[in-house]
Design a binder for these strands. Structure first.
Length: 223
DNA sequence: GCATTAACCACCG
DNA sequence: CGGTGGTTAATGC
């Protein structure tokens, strides 16, 4: 089994395809490897693929003309991104940057559109995926408006190991506190301070360049 | 008051 | 050595 088949076989919708369609889909997809800081797509690039993170970590960012930039979300191994753009737009509206060396699966838009038009299980997967992302958005609005920096960081870490979205039995994510700050909208120093609070609360275990989640519900309920 | 930037230093890989 | 973590001081809203 080639790498792309191995990835697709883990997708819940893939098994529902006919043998022929499974072959067609996996033949149309590709994998590509990026170094740390490698750019998968830029804001303004034409939409050609839907992307899956096989191994590594990707951040989705926007850059303002003023020179300001912000990180929207992190997508770890097992996650997919860009379905909204593939469905609705001709051009990317954010930039996807690898935070580590990252291997990415690329599904051509034509394949995506065909599955979207023809396969129920694929649509069920998409709807559930989009639904979880919507929860994530609402949670992030909540964090932004009502919650403490500690809670914002807690939620941000929790979403990175979200078992509904990603396969990560170790519940661990490889990120520096600087990158954690970028993802949660905090400075490194404030993220560091918040990390200590979460560690003291026994919710996470901080290692060098890596965080292990000990209590996912605790993180999500952190005020 | 609280978070941010800048800066420093010790430590890890 | 570069990247990361822990901390402090100055600045800004």
């Amino acid at each position: 089994m080639n790498p792309i088949e191995a990835i697709l076989s883990r997708q819940p919708w893939f098994a529902s395809l006919s043998d022929e369609e499974r072959q067609n889909v996996s033949r149309s997809c590709m994998t590509r490897r990026f170094d740390a800081d490698g750019i998968i797509v830029r804001d303004g690039d034409p939409v050609e693929h839907w992307f899956g993170v096989i191994d590594g970590l990707v951040k989705l960012c926007v850059f303002e003309e003023s020179g300001q930039s912000t990180t929207l979300i992190g997508v770890p191994s097992g996650g997919w991104f860009g379905e909204g753009t593939v469905l609705n737009n001709k051009f990317w509206r954010y930039t996807a940057i690898c935070m580590h060396e990252t291997q990415v699966a690329l599904m051509p838009k034509a394949t995506f559109d065909r599955l979207h038009a023809e396969n129920l299980a694929f649509n069920q997967f998409l709807l559930s995926h989009v639904n979880i992302r919507l929860s994530q958005l609402i949670d992030s609005l909540l964090g932004d408006r009502l919650l403490s920096p500690e809670a914002r960081l807690a939620h941000c870490i929790a979403w990175l190991v979200q078992p509904q979205l990603y396969l990560n039995p170790e519940m661990t994510v490889s990120l520096s506190q600087n990158e954690l700050g970028l993802l949660s909208g905090l400075s490194r120093q404030r993220a560091n301070q918040a990390m200590r609070a979460l560690t003291d609360a026994g919710l996470v275990h901080a290692q060098y360049g890596q965080v292990k989640v000990l209590n996912l519900d605790g993180l999500l309920n952190y005020k």
